[in-house]
Amino acid sequence: MPTIDLFLELSKETCLAHYEGRVDNVFAHSLDGRRVVFPASALRRVVTKDGVEGVFRLHYSSEGRFESIQRLE
């Protein structure tokens, strides 16, 4: 299963927009510089009362579809 590591820093207001469905996707850059897009609904698993901050690993299927997110730090 392919993985991509990235650093995310999202305020609680930004996370709320994702949570409420006003934003469908998260756009970020991986630690190695690649552009990454994944569903905003994935943030529900890692959001705290302050938002989202830290290094995360995204897991994708062999077809390139997002499967899961895991906090590394």
Rank of each mutant, 00 (worst) to 15 (best):
P2E: 02
F27I: 08
S62Q: 09
F66T: 12
Q70W: 00
D5E: 14
D5N: 13
R65C: 05
L16V: 10
G51P: 02
V23K: 03
S68R: 02
A28C: 10
M1S: 07
E67M: 13
R65I: 08
E9P: 02
I4A: 09
P39A: 04
D50Q: 11
R35A: 07
E63A: 15
P39G: 09
V23F: 03
G21A: 13
V47Q: 04
F7T: 10
K49L: 02
D50A: 13
L16G: 10
L8I: 00
R71C: 10
F38C: 12
G51R: 05
K12C: 14
V47T: 08
E63D: 11
F7V: 11
G21R: 04
V36D: 12
S11G: 04
D50H: 11
A17F: 05
K12P: 12
A28L: 05
A42S: 07
F66D: 03
Y60A: 11
P2S: 08
G54R: 03
L58F: 00
S30E: 07
M1L: 08
H59Q: 12
V36Q: 04
R45M: 14
R71Y: 03
M1E: 14
V26A: 14
S62M: 06
R45K: 15
Y60N: 09
A17G: 01
S41L: 03
S30C: 01
E13G: 14
E9G: 04
D5V: 11
L8Y: 02
H29G: 12
L6T: 01
S30F: 06
V52H: 06
M1W: 05
N25R: 11
G54Q: 03
F27Q: 06
A17Q: 09
G54D: 11
P39R: 02
L72M: 01
S68I: 09
K49M: 07
I4D: 06
C15S: 01
L10M: 11
R71S: 13
R71V: 13
R34Y: 14
S62V: 15
E9S: 08
V47P: 08
